[in-house]
Amino acid sequence: MAVRVQAEDFDTARVLDALAAGDTRAGALCLFVGRVRDVGGGGALVLEHYPGMTETHLSRLEDEARRRFDLRDCVLVHRHGRLAPTDNIVLVAVAAAHRRAAFDAATFLIDRLKTEAPFWKREEDPDGNGRWVAARNSDRIAADRWRDDDRDR
């Protein structure tokens, strides 16, 4: 199991080096990193989570991805706490025999994570005034696409 929820930063190069290391059948690695965007003013992004439920749900997503996509390896890391523009937020790294499974699994994981894992983002301006980020319908539609795929099977 490779799911981590942490305040500290992660080293993307190191995660990628360790992904399916020595696995001679893993021909395709796919990496997604989500970072804090500057939405104007150069304020902070504060990420709240539900300790316990968050880790459980990320582990389940990993299990589901491994079942659906024939993965050779999978790593999910998500940060919480106060972050600044360009800081890393989330990392999804998967290894598979071929590229299609690797791309699909990475997309599946980030799409479902965004609508299921209990995290909440709050944007703060430099004066500390904040607003909670609203859930986006486009994220819901992206996640639901994977349920449509379920029905097709």
């Binding site: 989570h49 539900y50 989330v90 994570l113 609508t115 995290f119 909670w132 859930a135």
Partner: peptide, 10 residues
């Protein structure tokens, strides 16, 4: 029992 708004991680 936990109560929260729609999630916005990632």
């Amino acid at each position: 029992v936990a109560l929260f708004p729609p999630v916005t991680g990632g």
